[in-house]
């Protein structure tokens, strides 16, 4: 009798012990409701594969944006994001200059790349897909990013965001097929509560 009770207690403790870190690992989107602005400590990383392995990778140093998580209805959340492609950083100056040139971002004529969400679909307690209008080089297309909430507290919030964007439709097909048409975005976004 006693032994069985003991076992049940142990099991209950074990469950709680597992549940606690799990709660920290998978924060809920609804709990993080609020308005945030995107902090400069965020990291916007991209990579493009090349035939035979390797490729080009880099990040953007200058960007801004804000987002709002609707606690009552996560699907009513929204995000606005602006990227300044002039601030692109890659492993070589030649690559940066090429990316800024008229062959790719054409930063002389198009200073920004923008994203404006149109639909948010929750895919799990801490994850969602964000669909929206991406505008680059004067062309606007519907794109989708996958968002996972990684951490939050009273003042700030962290996400990882991933997305695969085909660049050819934006008039940036230079270098294909040596370099993949698909740009992989891997972002760590930090939001500060407003």
């Amino acid at each position: 009798m006693n032994a069985r009770r003991h076992l049940a207690l142990t099991a209950a403790f074990a469950l709680i012990a597992m549940a606690l870190p799990a709660r920290a690992q998978a924060p809920s989107l609804a709990d993080a409701a609020g308005s945030y602005s995107i902090a400069t400590s965020s990291r916007i990383h991209f990579s493009i594969g090349q035939t035979g392995g390797g490729g080009i990778a880099g990040n953007f140093a200058k960007f801004s944006g804000k987002f709002r998580i609707d606690g009552g209805n996560v699907s009513r959340s929204s995000v606005e994001f602006t990227l300044f492609p002039e601030s692109v950083r890659a492993r070589e100056r030649r690559i940066e200059n090429f990316l800024r040139s008229s062959a790719v971002f054409d930063t002389d004529n198009y200073q920004t790349v923008t994203f404006r969400s149109t639909r948010v679909t929750q895919t799990g307690p801490s994850s969602a897909n964000i669909e929206g209008a991406l505008t680059a080089r004067g062309k606007t297309r519907k794109e989708r990013f996958a968002v996972t909430l990684t951490d939050w507290d009273k003042r700030s919030i962290s996400f990882t965001i991933r997305g695969s964007i085909r660049r050819a439709p934006y008039g940036m097909d230079v270098g294909t097929p040596i370099y993949s048409n698909v740009v992989e975005f891997d972002m760590d976004i930090k939001g500060l509560r407003r």
């Binding site: 090429f98 008229s102 062959a103 230079v174």
Partner: peptide, 8 residues
């Protein structure tokens, strides 16, 4: 040259 042309 135009950078895209130069690349190609």
């Amino acid at each position: 040259l135009d950078p895209a042309l130069q690349f190609s």
